[in-house]
Design a protein around this nucleic acid. Sequence first.
DNA 1: CATTATAGTTAGCCGCACCTAACTCTGTCA
DNA 2: TGACAGAGTTAGGTGCGGCTAACTATAATG
Lengths: 158, 158
Amino acid sequence: MKDTVKKKRNNLSASLEDYLEAIFNIAGESEVVRSKDIAECLGVAKPSVTRALKILAKKGLVNYQPYGYVTLTKSGIAEAARVAKKHEVIKSFFVDVLGVDARAAHDAACRTEHALGAAIISRLLGFTDFVNKAGRNGYDIAKEFRKFHKSRHRGKNR
Amino acid sequence: MKDTVKKKRNNLSASLEDYLEAIFNIAGESEVVRSKDIAECLGVAKPSVTRALKILAKKGLVNYQPYGYVTLTKSGIAEAARVAKKHEVIKSFFVDVLGVDARAAHDAACRTEHALGAAIISRLLGFTDFVNKAGRNGYDIAKEFRKFHKSRHRGKNR
DNA sequence: CATTATAGTTAGCCGCACCTAACTCTGTCA
DNA sequence: TGACAGAGTTAGGTGCGGCTAACTATAATG
């Protein structure tokens, strides 16, 4: 059985995943990660960040000590990358396949990334790749869909 | 500007949307809707249902009086149908396009349906229709994707 | 080196959404 | 018709994840 070799699940809440992802993103841009940056990035007050950091530290995902900079642990990086990847996969699908504008796609991805498991994400990634690849083989699925969608909208309004 | 004619938003939490959807689904099967049915359907305890019903009643979405059967108001039906439709659109996409099995698709749809707005849902519905239609025009996108996905998986494991 | 602005923390409150325990109502059946 | 099972409610507790107010630590500046 698969369950006999079940991996230790971190079981993060959506909110904690958001904090982890924010730290990951900031770290990729700004050399150091400050509590304040996280708060701004997520639009929450500073005490919320402090509490989240303590919890993430207890779970071994961030290196945290009071008044210090924040860094991700090895497993924190892995976990954050996993979440960020989901975000990216979902957003790409919305943009490249559905033709949603980048801003709306980003927002929707933020809300959706915590709800989809690895299996569906893998298929979604595969599908987006497939669509992009198919475009290079003559039949451009995304382009054809855009036509389809537009004509359907016209039909609706008249 | 669009905002000048902004509609009154009900602004239901994900949880309340779940209650509403459950009532809608039960009503479509069982003549009368009992508090207990809702509790079983959602896997929550009965007091949770009582509280949710009071809130939904205050919002004018259900007709509720203590110890009575539950019915949806007109706007409750509209709102519930909207949520149920989202669920259906998402699930269909997972099943018909991505080839996910029905059970997993249902579960994922439950978690995703509160996160996607009308615009993306509309595009997703359109896309699923497009894929289904394209199958009848010679190039079966879903089928081709399944091949693509399988071969990619083979490549991964060896 | 003292001052002061700013970053970070602590303490404590609130709302949401779940729960259990215990009570009340209702409909059935002997 | 009265007792009882089961449905529904009330009361009150919990955890999460926000918040503000007030305190403390750090770092920059004269």
